[in-house]
Design a protein around this nucleic acid. Structure first.
Length: 277
DNA sequence: CGGGACGCCTGTGAGC
DNA sequence: TGCTCACAGGCGTCCC
């Protein structure tokens, strides 16, 4: 579920309440994808810093332990995770598997499928966080990601452009929804080999990706089922999706019936007329 | 090494 | 109505 826009919407939502808060208690529910990696009680008394994001990961710095000045929690929302800030105490639901109680309110992770994770790390650059982040590509809005650099990276890849976008080793942030949408807006068939894209089409794809992600963030992300922002509100981007989940519907540009194919066990939605190989 | 399939886990909706 | 099955936003690991 949560792709970069949803994670960034979450980051912005929780940051004002989290930043500067002191941890009073940590509560764990059912196991997530990976263990926390530390006695949760050891986090008591530490102070939370400004929330950061890397790809689809959130990083909550924890300050106050002199021997570990840069430690923190790396959070991934998996397929069905969302993080909420609780203004008032609420009884935990069935899928709430991590809760951080602070002097300014509680932070709670809801994740029915439990593909998400909360991992303690000595630093963002230290294990175990570094290992999880090691293969990530550039941030989509990083100015260092020029059209030329993007094109050069694509030329190295022999697989489909859709798989490259999903892989996140060239550029992070796109999951299935936004990869489909960006390819539609760039007029590129998802089956097109990444290495075959020319300079112009690569530049157009990068621009389409940025625009798609920016519009999704402005709409509060996409809520297909589970995603909620820090205050429990649904995203609205799914209503403006041009192709995702619209198999059989007419293309909004040319009227051709939109198609769905499967690539790497994932659905790809596209317009067979507007998107060329 | 790159590329692709698998599996983690639960919920939902379609079809019978 | 109730059951079974396919499928769902991610990604680390394994195998070829």
């Amino acid at each position: 579920m949560p792709e970069l826009p949803e994670v960034e919407v979450t980051r912005r939502g929780i940051d004002p309440l989290v930043q500067g808060a002191r941890v009073l208690d940590v509560r764990l529910g059912k196991p997530l994808r990976w263990p926390l990696g530390r006695d949760p009680q050891a986090l008591r008394g530490l102070r939370l810093g400004a929330v950061e994001r890397r790809g689809k990961y959130l990083w909550l710095p924890l300050q106050g332990a002199p021997e570990l000045p840069s430690q923190g929690l790396l959070i991934h929302l998996g397929m069905s995770g969302s993080v909420r800030v609780l203004a008032q105490p609420e009884p935990p639901g069935a899928h709430e598997h991590f809760q951080l109680d602070t002097d300014r309110g509680s932070l709670r992770l809801n994740d029915p499928r439990r593909f998400g994770a909360v991992v303690w790390s000595a630093a963002l650059e230290a294990q175990p966080a570094a290992r999880l982040l090691a293969r990530l590509g550039l941030e989509p809005f990083d100015p260092a990601l020029t059209a030329a650099r993007f094109h050069a990276a694509l030329r190295q890849r022999q697989t489909s452009i859709k798989a490259v976008l999903l892989g996140g080793e060239v550029v992070v942030g796109a999951g299935n929804i936004y990869a489909c949408e960006a390819l539609f807006h760039a007029g590129i068939d998802p089956r097109c080999r990444a290495a075959d894209l020319g300079t112009q089409r690569a530049a157009r794809l990068l621009q389409a990706l940025r625009q798609t992600l920016a519009q999704a963030m402005a709409a509060g992300g996409s809520t297909l089922r589970d995603f909620r922002d820090a205050h429990g509100t649904n995203g609205r981007f799914q209503q403006q999706a041009a192709v995702y989940g619209r198999e059989g519907e007419p293309c909004g540009v040319c009227g051709t019936r939109l198609r769905r194919i499967v690539q790497a066990q994932r659905s790809s939605f596209f317009c067979p007329r507007c998107q060329r190989r």
